[in-house]
Design a protein around this nucleic acid. Structure first.
Lengths: 228, 228
DNA sequence: ACCTGAACACCGTTCAAGT
DNA sequence: ACCTGAACACCGTTCAAGT
């Protein structure tokens, strides 16, 4: 990997690789320099300092978050498809996405998807402030879900785990201290790990359905998708 | 603040105060020792190392996240009230909550609220797996929304800001490259900063309404709260 | 315009030694 | 059982000096 001259792009590429592999906390200027085969201080000439190096990586990630093509017959289904596509993209780059989040740029990264959502909400007959509200609600919903989901995955062995707290033995105590209802099937369901993909689609569909129903035209009747 | 002997509680208290004030990145073992008036190494005797000190603070935060008392006449309204109470609690301790999030313990912190949600979903007539799904959907919704919201607040001046991208001048370009619809009111609404509290309540009510409707008993008819 | 090594002011952590 | 200072192996960053 002989290089004639170090460029800013070289620095960003190598830094991005290290971050994707090991996370930002393991990216040190000295390791990066070693990887690039230069003096530590050369990096400073190209990118300023560590913080603006990370900023540049984030900037790049935001820019690369591609456009989305909605699929499906109804606006609600197309909203769901946008949501799923976005979820997939976000989940492919966990470390970088976390950095985008820390820098408060999640919303900006979301702009292409926002445009797609505007189109669908419009097609469902919503206009003006109500349309904007629906778009934002779905946007918050999707981004939020992905953040919570990531959180769950990084979660260490929880002590006591959710499943323990809701499992047969202790459930009795917890319930009776609180209310008296009994629902072993519910307790079992909450004791199992959630299926995030399924929960995600269910939630987005429910929310989008509720927000888009009763709009002027083009969305089909809410009853069409009430049960399934 | 003369102290006879340094205790683990002293260390945790002071560390918590520093973290709440300035965030975890500014908590160094040396500063903490100076604040406590001891040698750095004494801290190690009491808490092991920096990482387990932070873990202990997180553990404490999770434990202190109190029980919630739902208010409202319908299950949906009581779910909304739980959601609002939780949002308020989470927003009161941003740094600590971020640490809980980083350690994947958000869900555990959410357990008291989860129990309240189970009660309401049950009261609405949902049972078993479907009840569990509804609880989890709302849970993800609330936690996710708070995370996104925090993210937005920490957001630096965005360049280009969302409001620019959706403002009059550029909107034309963006729209026409994409679709041909025109909706100046929508563009204006998206250009304004979101009202998070309002959006939050709207979203939770829509989601809870959709998930709890058509259940066996106790929730009132969905039509009761369809329009308002 | 680009690169370098030396130096500075920090870190977290270990350890042998004290009481 | 608790506390200490010295020392180690790291950091990010600055700066004067090179080409």
């Amino acid at each position: 990997m002989a290089r004639s001259a170090l460029t800013r792009e070289d620095v960003l590429d190598t830094a991005a690789r290290l971050v994707v592999q090991h996370g930002p906390q393991h990216l040190t200027m000295r390791k990066l320099a070693a990887e690039l085969g230069t003096a530590v201080t050369s990096i400073y000439w190209h990118v300023g300092n560590r913080e603006s190096l990370l900023d540049a990586l984030v900037e790049r990630t935001v820019r690369e978050m591609g456009a989305l093509t909605p699929r499906g017959r109804t606006p609600v289904e197309r909203v769901v498809s946008v949501a799923r596509a976005l979820r997939r993209e976000l989940r492919a780059r966990p470390h970088l996405i976390a950095m985008v989040h820390e820098r408060g740029l999640t919303e900006r990264m979301f702009l292409p998807a926002q445009r797609a959502l505007v189109h669908e909400v419009h097609a469902a007959g919503l206009r003006g402030a109500r349309a904007a509200q629906a778009v934002r609600a779905v946007q918050f919903q999707v981004v939020g879900h992905v953040l919570v989901e990531r959180n769950r995955e990084r979660s260490p062995v929880q002590s006591p785990a959710e499943s323990d707290l809701w499992s047969a033995g202790r459930a009795e105590t917890l319930w009776s201290s609180d209310h008296t209802e009994h629902d072993p099937a519910l307790a079992r369901a909450l004791a199992r790990p959630a299926d995030p993909e399924r929960l995600f689609v269910l939630s987005v569909r429910a929310l989008a359905g509720a927000l888009l129903e009763g709009a002027g035209s083009g969305g089909g009747s809410p009853a069409d998708r009430a049960e399934q």
